[in-house]
Amino acid sequence: MIGEHVADTLATEPSAASDDVASSGTATRATRLLGAAALVGVAWLAAFGLGFSPADRDQRESVRILYVHVPSAWLAYLAFVVTAVASGLYLFRRSHALGWDRVAGASAEVGVLFMGITLVSGMLWGRLTWGVFWEWDARLTTTAFLFVTYVGYLAVRGLGGSHQQRARRSAVLALLAVLEIPLVHWSVRLWRSLHQEATVLRPDGDVKMDGLMLFTLFVGIVAFTLMYAWLVVHRQRTLAAEDAADDAGLDRALAARRAEVG
């Protein structure tokens, strides 16, 4: 319990944990700035994605779906990698700081959200371009599996027990689950696939994409990254407050029990 807050660097105020949770919000000056930057980024993306960028020769207007689909897929990867790193920091450091566990949980929640957006936007694009919503193709299948894995990860976090039990179980799972990401990314090379291969993240660096489209994609990545950071910081803080409320409840129950016995 003592070491728990030491590495809890992202929490608003460690001492707020058991004192006045209700009175302190999760926003600080820094997160307000971050939130404003994310909003500007999304507006910028809307302007380029819906306005300035051209329609595609084959896909026509439906190419605009990619400015949501690709950034959300990359951010989901990033979120799950952050979950794995935070889980490793929790598991392999002697302090076993729950702060890292909450960062892992918050990042996974946001990652599941982005992965869901990836799947839905991809299905809409698939119906318009391929003619079908879904195909049990390597990329689609591995992505669906990744999504379901992290829904399972979140369910395991909710199974109960002490905070340390939750952290240990989920950290082990997160370190295993992150190994699926390379499989998802290279699935289009490993198997013959309906899904196209990577355009930007390709080994030979020969990007075959219209310049303005590529720029719009870049805007999408920036906007989604800011949004991700903003969501994770806030979620991590509400998780800290939840844990503190749990601890406070336990302490109250112990005090009541002692009063009863004494």
Partner: peptide, 21 residues
């Protein structure tokens, strides 16, 4: 019984295509 249109990983603006195609 099922036809799917494959799309390459190349993206070309609609009006810049005359020479390309």
């Amino acid at each position: 019984d099922r036809v799917e249109v494959k799309h390459s990983n190349e993206y070309v603006a609609e009006n810049a295509d005359r020479l390309d195609s």
